[in-house]
Nucleic acid binder design. Structure first.
Lengths: 204, 204
DNA sequence: AAAATACTTGACTGATTAGTCTACATAGGC
DNA sequence: GCCTATGTAGACTAATCAGTCAAGTATTTT
């Protein structure tokens, strides 16, 4: 195969950047092209619509993050520590990003998903799919914690879904109030939601 | 004062309707006017921008709901029951709305707030303000529950903020997945977050 | 009746939007 | 050297966008 271009990745990266920082609606194809250093023709060579590009950008973001998630939720880490480390990781990433853009951006899955959910089934389904994958990390950590007697969670899937939703609510609040400190308290909330037995709280 | 027009209310109602069902970005001034039965000139007679209309629409929505909130969180109701009734109320309202529009719409404060937070400080501040008012209902219910020994909540303000965030995360998830049933489990999650002592769970 | 207030009307502007299209460039296989 | 696959370039369209404006209408105050 002749010539390989990195433009497809540049476009998905640019799209994620802009949509995370602003929104789906205010991120124009022109702006994405400009940031990626592409022309209109290249954009529509790789993607047949802004909607399709968005789905691809979300999947690409997931692929970039997967290795980190696998490490954070490694079975070698005590199950309750996995959550603490994950929450720290997200906090640090958001704080770091704030320095360049001035805002706490929250979770792009929620922001974009909430924005397009009633209007774009393609993007919505992609958000759904990635959401489900991420919950699996929570679910197996919960199952392990339950097996070790650290928590009582007879329905790990439901517990994971609940904790995931609570965490995303907190991320959304942090975005809206532009305050990363709102994430500080979440570890304790997570312990409550998980039902951590008092003597087993993870050390941090 | 001569002639009173209800157009201002018609415009804020139309705006809330459309933005809740779709999004801030995809709701055009033209569409708002059409639904309200107004012409462009009337719109800009009452509001100097789409942003200002949005802030007014959010405040108007708050005012319409305040009496309900006051009733649901009346001090005459046992404190933990207030939450259960509130969650039921929101569930029913979303389920009802689903019948006309086909989608679970979640909370407009979160959807709109998350969408515009980095771009429109006026709307963002309005969301913030209303958000804080609603948390006060949670806060005083938590304080009452604590005083009655139903829960342990030495910091009612923090607890209220945490519960509010968790609930909104669940509402956002319900919107994204278009599934009102995700709200069903929240009462139990709320009990965990609140730290309800087992023997004091509210009857429902 | 006149004047002032409180709206309504709808044509208009200039910018921006997503998406199209044709022509062109550059690389590898032969 | 030449053909084909893989891109790139950028002008173009038609729709839609938020917002402006000048002229008009209806209602109350004086």
């Amino acid at each position: 195969m002749p010539r390989v271009s990195d433009m497809k990745n540049r476009l998905t990266d640019a799209a994620m950047d802009l949509m995370w920082e602003n929104s789906y609606g205010t991120t124009s194809v022109d702006a994405i092209c400009e940031r990626a250093g592409a022309k209109k023709g290249s954009f529509y060579y790789f993607f047949k619509s802004k909607s399709e590009l968005t789905a691809a950008a979300l999947e690409a973001e997931w692929n970039k993050n997967k290795a980190n998630m696998d490490a954070l939720f490694s079975p070698t880490v005590p199950p309750l520590d996995r959550f603490d480390r994950y929450f720290d990781y997200v906090h640090d990433r958001l704080a770091e990003r704030e320095e360049t853009c001035g805002s706490i951006l929250g979770c792009p899955l929620l922001s974009i998903g909430s924005e397009v959910s009633t209007q774009d089934q393609g993007v919505r389904a992609t958000v759904d799919r990635i959401w489900a994958r991420k919950i699996k990390y929570f679910e197996s950590a919960i199952r392990d914690a339950h097996a070790q007697g650290l928590i009582v969670a007879p329905d790990p899937e439901a517990k994971a879904r609940a904790l995931f939703a609570c965490y995303h609510g907190t991320l959304a609040q942090a975005r809206i109030q532009n305050d990363v400190e709102l994430l500080r308290d979440f570890k304790e909330v997570a312990r409550d939601v998980l039902g951590v037995k008092h003597e087993h709280a993870a050390s941090s």
